[in-house]
Design a protein around this nucleic acid. Sequence first.
DNA 1: CTGTATCCAGGTAGATACTG
DNA 2: CAGTATCTACCTGGATACAG
Lengths: 107, 107
Amino acid sequence: MQQNKIDTCPFQEAMDLMSGKWTMTIINTLMAGKMRFKVLERSIPGINTRMLVKELKQLEKTGVLTRTAYATVPPTVEYALSEKGISLTSVLAAVQDWALKNMQTKN
Amino acid sequence: MQQNKIDTCPFQEAMDLMSGKWTMTIINTLMAGKMRFKVLERSIPGINTRMLVKELKQLEKTGVLTRTAYATVPPTVEYALSEKGISLTSVLAAVQDWALKNMQTKN
DNA sequence: CTGTATCCAGGTAGATACTG
DNA sequence: CAGTATCTACCTGGATACAG
């Protein structure tokens, strides 16, 4: 999650994008469908408000997800994966697959 | 690259493992075959000795690569991917693929 | 509910210089 | 060549408290 503008390689950029501590967890959670902030927060044990906000902003900026706010009281904001976000499924799957094969013996 | 022992999910562990700034670059470089320390260092522009040593140690510890030292003068040390490391190819490919499709429009 | 604002601890990464 | 040793800057992430 380094912000160096020196990174010109798409691969590095992609890794950078996904390297946040909660990034992939958030994306993975949102695979289930659009979700409100609070629901998302409750779905990811251990995360705190500040981190979730930060990650969501970052992911929105990079176009991985979309944010939709409704002018209700109290406020309603929904987060959903964009096409770009959904297309991360293949990466998610590859990592998951590798993890299951290579990390399970531990613990 | 957080070291929290609280992470019990294999997926999180895997992401943790790959999240170092230089980790995937090193692995990717080593895909070409075994390599000596200095060669590796020269193959990865921008990295410094300390970081390379640190990452290599980490990756050796997690079994992604192997370190072989020869008692020569001057010393010869070769690093090579293990089976576990080589099996990361699928992840590498998935990320690469996604990156090319989704990051190229930028820059 | 959906964030923002602070404050702070710890880790990550860079630059050298130096050793066997 | 293959590292180790320092010293430092910066960033990430956590804990609250508070606001619209």
